[in-house]
Write a protein that binds this DNA or RNA. Structure first.
Lengths: 236, 236
DNA sequence: CGCCTACTTGAAAGCGTTCAACAGTAGTGG
DNA sequence: CCACTACTGTTGAACGCTTTCAAGTAGGCG
């Protein structure tokens, strides 16, 4: 029996303006469409790929969310990103044989898989595709530098406030509720990402809640006073 | 009077195996050669570009060294990289109108400038050039993640030991002395890069020296026991 | 309904920062 | 050429933010 086709073509996809097609003509989107693989959704905790796997694809979130993390020689794990619908990831292993990163679904998540060999071939005939991938990579570098500043120079409360506003802004871009939302990652994940102990993250959530800046219950968060949050980002 | 031509063609350049030409045919190198600008060297402290300048080029160090740093809304400076001969930088602003980074020479430094408009055009006809730039960008992302782990998860002594071994390895790749060398950046720069106060960097240098792991006098450093340094990286 | 995991809260300890003073070196100008 | 100056780097002591350790609480999922 044929499996029901849950695929949504790029041309039909609500995310196309946040995704690679944003820079492509409709003919080029069709060519891209041809190489994309859309597997059945992963459930929470499922691995997209693990460090050491053969590197062979880039990924885009279609729905749900993903975390990526590295594990260094001493076993230290570092979460390197959380990815929302329309975001391209897996870019750190392009120059390697094997993945240097592990990617895991934070909730039920569906994906587009872009086989790198095909994508690379397509870049030869579609320069605007190569250009767009470079743009995404450049943004990733810029954002990584901002994260480094955050972790290297800012206090715990600034780190968490910045994190919350960043998530909010990314949700807004997707026309999702951006003042009240469900975090898909744990306190421990947030702490790992921001270079804080999970207890510190928990304490900061509590403090923001007590100060009336946010309302928080477990993973459910409401940003009550964005201006105050922005103040906290800039303090210190 | 014609200015003496201090340029070294890519084909003559000792760095070509560390630089973009590594992936190009000789015909393609010639095409790249055509768009490269090689200005007169900058002296120590000179700015290559500053945040807010129009973004229009990528850069490669030919000799000397460069630091790049961002300045956020609150005026916090974060050094995002030190660049040695053959290294390509300026990649974080590709998707922007203006530079989001400032680049400054750490010593007398000569450069190759790659006008981005021309480079982008050349990528259309030379896919391996686009591919190579993506590889460099991917490496930058990978290295940024490693730096994030270092700053986010490791103790001060691990951060400095890792920094020293990283510089050493990059010097070795350039066939430069890698066990005894001159650092071109200040303690304050190292501290800023690694998320430490300059006093802490100074104390760690002193400790390593007292422990016989390195010999240090101001900017002159000798790595006496690389194995011990590696141990320090992995501790904690 | 009960277990397990995620989260919260408290108290003590530690690492790195901050503040302060000093030393040494390189660069400047007389 | 030397003296002065400014900057970079070093060292000490106290403070403080975050971590660690420990215990307890609350949801979620079987």
């Amino acid at each position: 029996m044929l499996k029901a086709k849950i695929e949504t073509a790029c041309t039909e996809c609500a995310l196309s303006q946040l995704c690679l097609p944003v820079a492509l003509s409709s003919a080029d989107v069709a060519a891209l469409e041809n190489i994309i693989d859309r597997p059945t959704p992963l459930s929470r905790g499922g691995y997209l790929f693990q460090a050491g796997d053969q590197f062979d694809s880039l990924y885009v979130v279609r729905s749900g969310s993903v975390k990526t993390y590295t594990v260094d020689a001493t076993g230290t794990e570092q979460i390197t990103g959380f990815y929302l619908p329309g975001e391209l990831f897996g870019l750190s292993s392009i120059n390697e044989q094997t993945q240097n990163t592990t990617a895991q679904a934070l909730e039920r998540t569906s994906l587009c898989i872009l086989p790198y060999h095909d994508l690379d071939g397509l870049c030869e005939t579609v320069p605007s595709l190569a250009r767009q991938i470079m743009r995404v990579m450049s943004n990733e570098i810029r954002d990584d530098h901002a994260l480094l500043t955050l972790v290297s120079k800012k206090r715990a409360e600034s780190r968490l406030a910045t994190f919350l506003l960043s998530i909010s802004a990314r949700l807004k871009k997707r026309k999702l509720p951006d003042e009240e939302f469900q975090l898909s990652m744990s306190r421990s994940d947030i702490g790992n990402y921001l270079g804080l102990a999970e207890e510190t993250v928990s304490r900061m959530f509590t403090r923001f809640h007590e100060d009336g800046v946010i309302k928080v219950n477990r993973k459910q968060v409401a940003l009550l006073d964005k201006a105050a949050l922005q103040e906290i980002c800039d303090s210190s």
